Simulated assay, not measured.
Amino acid sequence: MRVWTRGRMTAPAVLLSAATASSLAGAQSGPCAGPIHAGVELRRQRRDAEALAVFREAAAACREPRLRVQMAEAEQALGQWVPAARDLREALAVPGDSWVEQRRPRLLEELRTIEQHVGGVMVVGGVPGSEVLLDGERVAELPMVRAAPAVVGTLRLEVRRAGYYVISRSITVEAGHDAQESIEMRPMIAEQAPPPAPIAREPAPAAAATVVATRGAAPRDTARLPPEAGSSRRSWALGLGIGAGAALVAGVVALAVREGRASAFNDNPACFEYQGAAFGGGECERAQAAVGTTTALAIGAFVAGGIAAGASIVLLVTGPDRPRETARVVRCGVGPGLIGLACGGTF
């Protein structure tokens, strides 16, 4: 894995590895002799990657500790410190193996050299089932019961889980120590759309007034409505519509500013976020604060604009019609002749 391929062997380690390989070449016997001999010859030609492939292929059928030692030597030469330490520990843990016992002091010295390049990472907290990655390679799953071996140096730790924001941070691993990292994962919440504005029902038309005219009396029109009522409602509707437009424009501007500050934060390699706090310098903190402020302003502007627009529509729909001449006018007077009555009207 890429996370384990950091660095190359030091000069003392190369000499110790070569001495071990030479002694192994002269002590081979049994079914593992062929692969071990072929791998040792490749290593003498400094073709360590090819030798490691031969050893690993033979490991499926050969369980002798000396093959594990050869695997560890090749991994050490390639800078794969974590698997090298694992394979050498497994070889030293086999009880009663005469070949290992004859070389135990030298193998222990080599193990101490390898362990100078190996530490561990322990992640505490998080959501069960989350994946733990070091430099992009999966090494464990939460909850962790033991530290995951890791090469010494600066690594990128990531914790992933579907439906949660990714935890990503840089950590430093020291030889012989476990780097403990506490995390808190936040779930992703889907944004909910605002409820639709209520549908206003158009009121039933008012019944036309009846005008009664008497002989000789002037007709009266009682069907006229006060013009102040309709005018006031229309003024309110217009004002709310203008306010809604201004609020929506302000929301769009705040959203554009937010995206700009968020891009500045994400594009800065020094900036990262941990438990809601920004790290990486003053510029990172100002960018995060600007993102939070503009987000709140955009949400407030959109909500206010939506409410104002809905209220404006309701006032326009439910407002009274313009005053109309809906009265029935009846006029009566003296008709032709001595006794008569003539009436006329507009309906």
Rank of each mutant, 00 (worst) to 15 (best):
V3G: 10
T5V: 08
G7S: 07
R8G: 03
A19L: 08
T20A: 07
A25T: 06
S29M: 02
G30I: 08
I36N: 09
G39S: 04
R43P: 14
Q45I: 11
Q45L: 13
R46F: 08
A49S: 13
A51M: 13
A53V: 12
F55M: 07
F55Q: 03
F55E: 04
A61T: 13
A72E: 12
E73W: 04
A74R: 04
Q76A: 02
L88H: 07
V94L: 09
D97C: 12
V100P: 06
R103H: 05
P105M: 15
V121D: 01
M122L: 01
V124M: 00
V127E: 00
V127Y: 01
S130D: 06
L133P: 00
L134E: 00
L134P: 00
D135H: 06
V145W: 03
A150D: 00
A150P: 13
T154S: 12
L155W: 13
L157C: 08
V159A: 09
V159R: 09
R160T: 04
G163F: 07
V166H: 15
I167D: 03
S168M: 04
R169P: 06
D178F: 03
Q180M: 07
R186E: 09
P187N: 08
A193V: 11
A200M: 15
R201M: 14
A204E: 04
P205W: 09
V211R: 05
A213Q: 10
R220L: 14
T222A: 11
L225F: 05
S235Y: 15
W236T: 05
I242G: 14
A246G: 15
A247S: 10
V257K: 04
G260H: 02
A264G: 01
A264W: 03
A270Y: 15
A270Q: 14
Q275Y: 12
G276H: 09
A277H: 14
F279E: 01
F279G: 02
G282A: 14
G282I: 14
E283W: 09
R286I: 04
A289M: 08
T294V: 05
A298W: 02
G300A: 01
G300M: 01
A301V: 05
A311M: 10
I313T: 10
L316D: 07
G319Y: 02
P320T: 05
R322D: 10
P323K: 04
A327F: 12
A327Y: 13
R331H: 05
R331M: 09
G337V: 08
G345C: 02
T346R: 04
